[in-house]
């Protein structure tokens, strides 16, 4: 436990449904653990100070900045990254498909953080207005798209997730 404190610790984190055990230096952030230790490089680092949102992952279903968590804090928790969004058969999550259809990504660097943020948001708010979507992604900076295409993609994905109507 805690008495002497530790510089490194053996942890077990369930990432995208699989238990991953590894030795983690305690100063390693969750983002670096995912990227370097587990080689899940889809989670990106845009600022490492909790502003840009590129590193957002789901921890126990909630969107969080993985640069602002230590890997040891994820011990025993469930983490979902961009690599875990598609179905096991490889078919894209409705948000992923809608992003492609609406040109919701250009360079693709901020995209993983936007997608994880929106996965959580659409669970909380399945039928959002454009303004609610903008508020939900206000902690994710995209320098390429100007956001309109992302908002449009999210509206379409929400419709698909609710099961209303067909998507193209």
């Amino acid at each position: 436990m805690s008495d002497g404190g530790c510089a490194s610790r053996s942890i077990a984190v369930t990432v995208n449904g699989s238990v991953c055990r590894a030795e983690a230096p305690v100063r390693l952030t969750l983002s670096d653990f995912l990227r370097q230790t587990l080689h899940l490089t889809g989670t990106h680092l845009g600022c490492e100070h909790g502003v840009c949102g590129a590193c957002t992952v789901l921890v126990d279903g909630r969107a969080m900045r993985s640069c602002l968590m230590l890997a040891v804090q994820a011990d025993g928790h469930q983490v979902t990254t961009i690599e875990g969004l598609a179905a096991p058969d490889g078919s894209l999550h409705p948000l992923q498909a809608a992003f492609c259809r609406h040109h919701g990504l250009q360079c693709g660097f901020c995209t993983p953080g936007l997608l994880t943020t929106l996965v959580e948001f659409l669970k909380d708010c399945p039928d959002p207005t454009a303004a609610e979507i903008r508020e939900a992604i206000s902690g994710n900076i995209c320098r390429c798209t100007g956001y309109d295409s992302i908002v449009a993609a999210t509206i379409e994905a929400a419709r698909a997730l609710r099961g209303d109507g067909t998507t193209p």
């Binding site: 370097q36 899940l40 889809g42 992003f99 492609c100 660097f109 993983p112």
Partner: peptide, 23 residues
Amino acid sequence: RDVPRVEDEPLIRGKGRFLDDIA
């Protein structure tokens, strides 16, 4: 025409290869 982008498939799955992904 608005054809699908050839770049999207890896990027949308988190399988892009950015500089910091090189190990």
